[in-house]
Design a protein around this nucleic acid. Sequence first.
DNA 1: TTGCTCGTTGCAAGTGATTCGCAACTACTC
DNA 2: GAGTAGTTGCGAATCACTTGCAACGAGCAA
Lengths: 139, 139
Amino acid sequence: MTADEALALVREHGGRVTASRRLLIDALFDGNDHHTAEDLASAVQAGAPDVALSTIYRNLDELERLGVIAHSHLGHGPATYHLTTAAHCHFVCQECGTAVMAPDELFATLVTQASEQFGFDVDIHHFAILGRCAACRRD
Amino acid sequence: MTADEALALVREHGGRVTASRRLLIDALFDGNDHHTAEDLASAVQAGAPDVALSTIYRNLDELERLGVIAHSHLGHGPATYHLTTAAHCHFVCQECGTAVMAPDELFATLVTQASEQFGFDVDIHHFAILGRCAACRRD
DNA sequence: TTGCTCGTTGCAAGTGATTCGCAACTACTC
DNA sequence: GAGTAGTTGCGAATCACTTGCAACGAGCAA
C-alpha cells in the first residue's frame, strides 16, 4: 500500500483528507517502521507546527480502524505504530531496550499449537517478546 | 515458597517486616495469581485502611528485586503481579480481555530458535500473547 | 526498657502517555 | 456559494505509576 492508497481508503470510508492526516500518513510511510506517537507528532509538526498531539492520536486511531496501521507495546514505554504491511514481531531487550525484528516463521509452531490446543488465534504482531539480547548476555 | 519464607528473605536482605508488607505478601499468596496493584491495594487496605498506594508499589518493587514476584503487561491495562513460582505465559483476548494460561512447552521451539538464530534469551513470562480467544472467534 | 539508626510510610505533588469535551473550523457535496 | 458533518486545537481529565520529604517505627545494642 502507498500513502495515496491509504488516503483513498480514508476517503472511501467517509473520512476527509486534511493536511494533518496527509502529513501523518507521509510520516508513517517514511521508511523507518517503529514510530511512537511523539515521533510522528514531531514529523507532522515539521510541516504544520500547530497540529495538536490529540489530533495525532485521533488520526492514528482512525488509521488503525481502517487497518492501515497497527500498534504494539514494546516493553514498558509508549506504544509504537507501524504499517500493517510491514508487520512483524519484535524481540525487545529488557536491559538496553533495543528492538530486534523477529521473522514470522519463528512463531509458526506457537500459532498452530495455540490454535489447536486452545482455540486461540494468536496475533503475533501486536506485542513484543521480552528478554535479553546477545550483546547484553555477553556482559 | 511460602509467605513466611518470603518475609524471611526480606529480612535477610536488610528489609524490615512491617504490617503493610506482611499483608501484601499474604495477598500475593492468596490463590489467585493475577493481581493488579489496585487489587493488591484493596486487599491490603482491608486489613490496614491507611496503607497508601505508593507503599504498595514500593513493596512490589522490593519483592520483585528479591525475585519473589514478577510483573507482566497483559495487553493495554495495568501490569499484573504474580509469584515467580507461579510464572507462566498468557494468552490475552483483545476482544473480551480474558487471560488464558499458556503452558511453557508451547514456547520451547520459539525459545530455542531465538537463542540459536539471534542469541536472544527470551523471557516468556514477562509479556502476554495477544489475539482472539475461542469464544470470541465463534462470534 | 530505652535509645538509636536507618529502613519505611503517608501524603501530596509530579510525570508520561493518552483521552475527552467542546466550540471553532473546513473538506466535501450539492 | 451554502450546508452538512467530519476534524481540529485547546485545555482539562484520566490512568498508572513515581518521587520528594518529613514523620514514623522495626530491630538491634546497651
